[in-house]
């Protein structure tokens, strides 16, 4: 009915936070990592604002495509009150219930997947740093 509005609200907040973080961010951190041949090389760590962009794109993408589905099903209309369910009090209650259940779980799942992506990215960064340290140690031993 209007479950995408919860994700849309989160997307607006994430976009604002991302812009604020981007302004405050200093020069990206340099680190030594090991690429495919294990040789240590200097690379730039992805800034947090870039990682926030992943969440922003997940949320906006999902919101736009779901909004289209709601237009397709006639649940969103181009005239006031824009949501057909909002015109009838009984339907409005059902709509709010759907937003509180389906909508909130959608936003939570997308955020959880993004947190998982952050975890995997951190693991890959640590592994690359370890490989570089091992490469440096081997070079020093030779």
């Amino acid at each position: 009915m209007a479950c995408f509005l919860v994700s849309a609200a989160e997307a607006v907040i994430v976009t604002a936070v991302e812009k604020a973080v981007e302004k405050k961010e200093k020069a990206p951190t340099e680190m030594t990592i090991g690429f495919e041949n294990g040789a240590p090389e200097t690379a730039v760590k992805i800034p947090f604002s870039q990682k926030l962009k992943w969440l922003r794109n997940l949320l906006w993408g999902g919101t736009v495509l779901l909004a289209f589905e709601h237009i397709w099903h006639g649940e969103v209309v181009p005239w006031f009150p824009f949501l057909t369910a909002a015109a009838d009090p009984a339907d409005a209650v059902e709509m709010l219930h759907e937003m509180a259940t389906v909508g909130v779980i959608m936003a939570l799942l997308v955020t959880a997947v993004w947190l998982g992506m952050l975890g995997v990215a951190a693991l890959i960064e640590k592994r690359a740093q370890r490989e570089a340290q091992a490469g440096e140690a081997t070079e020093a031993a030779l």
Binding site: C3, S7, N57, L58, G61, G62, L65, V102
Partner: peptide, 21 residues
Amino acid sequence: LGVLCLMYWGASLMWLVDAVF
């Protein structure tokens, strides 16, 4: 292409919740 991927994944995750319900 990263933008396209994330857009489709975002929608897929949201429809997955819809499908479960």
